[in-house]
Write a protein that binds this DNA or RNA. Structure first.
Lengths: 152, 152
DNA sequence: TTGCGTGCAAAGGTTTTGCATGGCA
DNA sequence: TGCCATGCAAAACCTTTGCACGCAA
């Protein structure tokens, strides 16, 4: 099989701990670097990126492109990701306020089946993000359209 | 309303012409810069990016993050985008070979209705890309997994 | 002791910005 | 003529890579 990481270093443990403490957040490399530097010895950016890549390959993290511009972000997948039990889990990202909504819905599970059966394409829900406008923003569309809510 | 671009310059015309000649392709800034430099006087990167941003705001182009890494890309929206008649049009992007499939399917149109009705979220199909594995790659998964097909 | 993981710095690529010049209206 | 758009260069960003050192096993 693939090569697992062999050494157990403090840096790896701290990075993984941060994801475990924020299991539902999408975390950019920049946030990780900043958060860890405030909470102990700073960790070099190169190490962070290398660990993120390795943790992703080991199935502990998932990489997203939820950001419309530039930066990638990662989320803790943990045992779920290993067991592969999260296949009907999609994300909705509001392009207005930036909120990220986790959606677990049988309708979407059917969708992946339909696309696979009729279009021969195996969707990876955990890598797929829907963009659009959330209910809160569509209600208050005349108010302050750039409310900048946090991604959860 | 918003400010439309006022001047008609050669650069803008050439950029728009390139998108009109490739109405179904997703085009990166780098490709645009290279293509236009081979076909007449080169256009500065800054101008390209500024025009892309303006054309997107005017509704003539759509911006995507179809690439998993780094670069954004744009597609000609044209009159369709203005009239807003392309709402059931999704994209499937194969993470294996990189091919981009355009999918127009009533199933997906129903999906957007369901998510809007039951989850209060208005999906923007033209900004949403599904990631997964295409039929060709899932068949030849034991062969050469990194075939690098072109995005169309 | 072995060699993987880290840190630092430098490089790489994409996108943005400042400023003087050019060109459309 | 007025002012927007362009071009060039430099900067800003995110991410990767090279290399020597430190640390886990």
């Amino acid at each position: 099989m693939e090569r697992q990481s062999t050494y157990r270093t403090k840096q790896k443990a701290r990075i993984l701990a941060y994801f475990e403490e924020n299991p539902h957040r999408h975390i950019t490399a920049a946030e990780l670097i900043q958060a860890l530097s405030q909470n102990g010895t700073p960790i070099g950016a190169a190490t962070v990126y290398r660990q993120l890549e390795r943790l992703e390959q080991n199935g502990l993290l998932r990489r997203y492109t939820a950001d419309e511009r530039g930066s990638a972000c990662w989320q803790y997948g943990g045992e779920e990701a290993k067991a592969g039990t999260c296949h009907s889990h999609f994300h909705l990202k509001c392009t207005e306020c930036g909120i990220l909504i986790h959606l677990d819905c049988t309708h979407l599970a059917e969708l992946t089946g339909h696309v696979r059966t009729d279009h021969g394409f195996a969707i990876a829900p955990e890598r797929t993000t829907f963009y659009g406008i959330c209910s809160q923003c569509s209600q208050s569309d005349t108010d302050s359209p750039k409310a900048e809510r946090n991604s959860i």
